[in-house]
Structures are given as C-alpha cells and as structure tokens.
Design a protein around this nucleic acid. Structure first.
Lengths: 226, 226
DNA sequence: ACCCGAATACTCGAAGTCGAGTATCAGCGC
DNA sequence: GCGCTGATACTCGACTTCGAGTATTCGGGT
C-alpha cells in the first residue's frame, strides 16, 4: 500500500472541493462547513493551510491567481492538477474499500478498566449509556429536521453511519453493564476480590506474585499461560 | 471538562503500568505488548519517550534511579506520584463514562462518496464487506484460541468490543450496498445521472448552476434549502 | 455618523507524532 | 571462538497538528 504523500483526511476534502472548481483555502473551509462535512472530517485553520501547502509541494494542486481586494489579506486561488485528481479518486476508493485499524477511546478504556473496581466500572459505563442514548435522540431529531427540509437521504449517509455505530456501541455497553452487575463474565469475581484486598492494604504486586495464595484456585487464571 | 495536560492515550497506559510498580520506559513498552494492550493503544517509541517526559514535567511521575549495566544505554526507572494516580483514575473514569467524537475513516469516505459514480461506490463497499468478514473470522479464531489457553473473558473485553463494532460496520455496509444497487435510496438516481452527464462531457459546475434544466424536477433537491 | 459584532482570510510558534536509526549485549549453532 | 539473530534501550529530527491571535471589512442598529 503506497503511503499517501499527504496523510490528513482534510487533504482529501480539499481535493474534493478543488475537483469541482478552483477555490482559495478560506472558501474551501466555508464550503465544507456549509455542506456539514466538518462533522465527518476534522477541520481547523492551521491544518488547512499546511495541508494546502503540502498538496502544492507534491504537485497535486497548483496556485492560480493570488490577488487581494482592498487591504485584505492576500487570497491565493488553487486548482487541482491531473495528478491531484488521480490521487483523489485513488484515495477515496481506498477509503471506501479498505478498513483501517482505528484506535477508539472506549477500546483503550476497556483495555485498562481492571485498574478500577468492577462496580465502579459498571457505574461509569451506565453513565456512558445514558449519554449515548441522549446523542442518539439528538441525531434522530436532526435527521427528521433534515428530511422535513427536503434534503435527500444521500447527503445524510455519513450521519446515519455515525448513528448506526453509536447504537452498536450502546448495545455493547448495555450488555457489559449487565454482565458486570450479574457477575456472569468469567474473571469478574477475581477482579472484585483483588480490589477488596487492595483496599484492605495488600499491595497489588504481592497478589500477582502469588495469586493462588491470595485468591484461591480462581487466582490461577492470572498466572502466565504456558 | 478540564483538558488533560498530557493528551496521548499512551500516557494513560504508562500511568497504568506505573500504578502497579516502578518501571523504566522500555519495560513499560514490553509489558504493554505482552498484555496485548498495543492492539488498543497506539504504541511507538518516539511517542513513548516524549510522553514519559511530559508526564514527568507535569509531576505525574518522577524518576527514581537511573543506572546502567555494562556499556548499555542508560535506564531511568520512573514511579507514579499521588497526583499521577489521581490523574490516572480520573482520566480512565472519563474515558469510560464519556463518549467523545471520533473521526472514523469510513465516515469521511461516505461524506465524499458522491464524487464517484454510485455503481463504483457499490463495488468498493462490496470489497470492504469482504475484508470486514475476513477480519471478523480472524478475530473469532483468536478468541477461540485465547479461550482454549484459559485466558479469562475479562482480558478479551476490548477485543470483543472491536469485534462488535466491526460487525456493526459490516451490517451498515451490506445494507448500503444493497440500497445502492436497488436504487431505493432517495437521491441515487440523480447522483447516477450527474455522473453520466459528466462522463458525456458536461462540466459539473454547469449542472449545479441549473440542476433542473439538466436533471428535470428531481434536480430540484440540489438547490439550497430555503 | 459612529460603534459593535460577525465575517473574511490567514499567520505563527509551541507541542506532539512518528518511525527509522544507533549501539550494546546475550545466547546459540557450527 | 566467531558470527548472527533477536532482544535491549533509547535518540533524533523531519514533519504535522493545533488553536489562539491578527488585521481588515461589512452590515445593521441607534
């Protein structure tokens, strides 16, 4: 997979605008905003200008006119090059066809959660579930409103995707909370016991050094698998 | 929401290790790797050392001993401070309880997909679906193997979450492909027609300037909503 | 006639990210 | 006893990211 010379997805959005017609960077930013693309692609000025610069350095876009009106700051209008158009279509195709590993923040949280006691985690995830439900309601309202305005579903696809993924997360979190509370998830009992011991003053290192002594037979699962 | 002084999730992983016992950075990296946490938290050396440095600057960890064996590079052992422990627990709690907006690459792709013709997009998403199915099979195999080795489900939670989200993505993509092929998604007909015209030599700008003339009544949906 | 806030159009530098590169050592086969 | 691979333990600097800051103009109200 030949790595893209300019990696920021914002660069792709810039190319998408310039594929329509030449624009200056600020116009690109307002265009993306109007179309709601900044919901899907992180946009901030610093990145925008450095990305435009990088695209130019690599010959994917080129400066057309650079004029000024009154004593306003200069405006440079850029146009896409044939190589830029090829890069755009290739990159977009790859984005659609090839899943990439994304580091979700909840995944990090779940990976480290044993550092907190299981009942605490259950409570925190419960709060998360509430917030997810609120976000889903907001998205629903937004979609209804957009529909009422006559916006075609085609332009809501990315938002529907976000909603779908949010709903999936909620489903997982709800299941998790119930598994934690009921204690059916293998390992939770031991996990809870470790935190009880720790709160009672036993250093965690010591528990791990000889789990079976502190936790009984179930502690065996903490030993390194042969 | 007070912004974290050190933002990289890797910093959280570092704190989680040092909460157990003092370590030197390289040991942290191998520990995280052994436990499979690098699947969930991006780990590379450059970031590791700069993150450790930042944590020290902010008083969340402190250097203990800095010795060397033979003529090996120096090793500095770090320990967590009380403020570091507080930061760790607060941050982890926030991570679990509070959803944050994540910019998924497929969302960017969907937002820009009208730049390609609908049948092309359908084909690309079909390829993605195949790849997602392959990844899901791999994860299933991994989980079976881990189970067989006696690893508690507790330590697979993050991987199960990834699997759940991957499955949700597959579901969405499959639905999308079928909606595109059947043409039931409102807007797809117009979208296809635009690409036909463009391939026939009509500039895209012109179509957008007077959509109704080029596309008939259905073109009206491209006009800005009042 | 003047003021104020919003919009226009960028600039700048501090901070962070990344991965290839460097140097050493331990063990193992031959 | 010699070379090779793989592990140990980091360093470096080019490149990106970020968002607050700057300077100007426009339009609407009073």
């Amino acid at each position: 997979m030949a790595r893209r010379r300019v990696g920021n997805p914002l660069a792709l959005a810039v190319l998408s605008c310039l594929a329509e017609r030449p624009m200056h960077p600020y116009e690109i930013s307002t265009t993306l905003r109007e179309r709601g693309k900044e919901q899907s692609i992180k946009l901030n000025y610093g990145s925008l200008y450095s990305v435009v610069d990088a695209l130019q350095r690599h010959g994917l876009i080129e400066a057309r006119e650079t004029g000024r009106e009154g004593r306003r700051p200069e405006r440079t209008v850029y146009a896409i090059t044939p190589e830029g158009l090829a890069e755009f279509e290739g990159w977009l195709s790859e984005l659609l066809s090839t899943p990439v590993k994304e580091y979700l923040s909840l995944e990090a949280g779940l990976a480290l959660m044993p550092a907190l006691a299981p009942d605490v985690v259950a409570r925190l995830l419960g709060v998360r579930a509430d917030r997810l439900r609120a976000q889903l309601r907001e998205l629903d309202a937004m979609h209804d409103e957009a529909r009422a305005k006559g916006l075609a579903d085609l332009f809501l696809v990315e938002s529907r995707y976000r909603q779908h993924m949010l709903a999936a997360e909620l489903e997982f979190v709800e299941q998790m909370v119930s598994d934690l509370r009921s204690g059916v998830l293998p390992g939770v009992k031991v996990w809870a016991r470790i935190h009880e011991l720790r709160d009672g003053g036993v250093p965690v290192e010591e528990i791990f050094a000889d789990p079976v002594r502190h936790l009984g037979e179930e502690g065996r699962m903490l030993l390194p698998p042969r």
